[in-house]
Write a protein that binds this DNA or RNA. Structure first.
Lengths: 86, 86
DNA sequence: TTTCATTTGTTCGTATGTATT
DNA sequence: CAATACATACGAACAAATGAA
């Protein structure tokens, strides 16, 4: 299962929401495994071609959804599948 | 003192760029000699009254310009004048 | 060998300013 | 005016490597 590349292009909606959706899809698809760290927010920002603020906004949404757990000065980790809502 | 004190004050431009310029001037003026270590980044941050991140940004610019060489867990050294570009 | 201090490397948290829509 | 997005800047904490004791 492969998640298509991220391409905000001219698709409607907010960049930070699309980015969060894209990351969520990668997590749910198992491409990003539980208890492993996400790339840093600055790295994510680079990879997705967005600003740090936007990347932070996206990871915050994932946090709200319980898909990731962020530990300050350490990183953001994929949550256990059983600890995830739904 | 050959190079005037650092004073970002209300001058235009970015702090990290002005700091890099100031350090570059000190290096080119010979105040800081080749093969000697710069003060640590945290020390530089204190001396210049800026944050660690800004000091690191400044030394990174010097690195790009080939004025210094940074060795992890050791320090940042003034490059040989003959090894410097231009 | 182990311990410790120093220094760079990395990361998140937060605030502010600017431009655009 | 408000929301989005970007960039700078500061702070705090942790990680890793080096070298000395």
């Amino acid at each position: 299962m492969v998640v298509p590349d991220f391409d905000p292009g001219d698709t409607p909606g907010y960049v930070y929401e699309m980015m969060a959706e894209h990351l969520a899809a990668r997590i749910e698809a198992g491409e990003l495994e539980p208890n492993t760290p996400l790339p840093s927010e600055r790295r994510l920002a680079q990879e997705y071609g967005v600003s740090l603020g936007t990347a932070r906004h996206a990871t915050r949404l994932l946090r709200y959804r319980g898909l990731v757990v962020t530990i300050r000065s350490k990183g953001t980790y994929i949550a256990d599948r059983r600890a995830r809502p739904q």
